[in-house]
Amino acid sequence: MNAIDVVKVGYIRELLAKGVREDSRGLMDQRPITVSCDVIDNAEGSAQVDMGSTRVLAGVKFVLEDTKPDTPNMGNLVMSAELLPLANADYEPGPPSPDAIELARVVDRGIRAGNCVKLESLFVGEGKAWTAYIDIYVLNYDGNLFDASSIAAMAALMSSKIPGVKDGAADYGSRSSPVKAENIVTSTTFGKIGDKILFDMTGNEETAADARVTIETDGSSIRAMQKGLSGSFSFDELERLVAESMSRHEGLKKLIEDSIRK
């Protein structure tokens, strides 16, 4: 942590002690979110999410691949995340950092565990199936990449159109069937700074945070969770946040659905 960070952390903590956030939101308020689908025409699916100043773009490409021996009737999802150096002064070029790997794997787990897209529906036949490569591109960082990326990946995947198949190969010039989404998973990430719990942290708040927990749900079940940073949560706090996450599901789900209909 550099000197400027030390000052920022002091500022955030001082404000929070009075119950105030740097952008004067309530502790459980979310920043405005906009979701725009089909922003990259060449990708089979794409979505850009703006959440405050955080901006994330997710793109989906479908690749026709041999099926795996243990899942002969299924396609696959492959999720990656890039913390682009243009998104934040602290991001450096190079292979994916542990932060980027964690981000991709947590978003992947929610969508996979929620059976949002049935992998059987990506099966083509004769040992071939589609693999959906979902790439999360962080374009501007101001906190809460988990929720922004989850919405972007979910919307990009749901708005995808699968290419046609010609002579046993992908025909990217034709797009046949839209991806069939069976379930929508939404993500909510809470932070803990001192004894305060807050929702949708900004970049400065994340610098000051002791602990973070991401809860992904389809409204009826928790589909994935991930605690991060060195701080802790009590089980009581976690149970409260699970309920909070579930109560926010419908609103976030509608946001994703509306972005696709547009």
Binding site: A113, V213, M225, Q226, K227, F235, E239, A243
Partner: peptide
């Protein structure tokens, strides 16, 4: 103090099953 220091989860848990 029974504080949770690591938590990961995937699959499906209702609130009751989590408890």
């Amino acid at each position: 103090n029974n504080d949770v220091l690591l938590l990961q989860m995937d699959g499906g848990f209702t609130k009751e099953q989590f408890a």
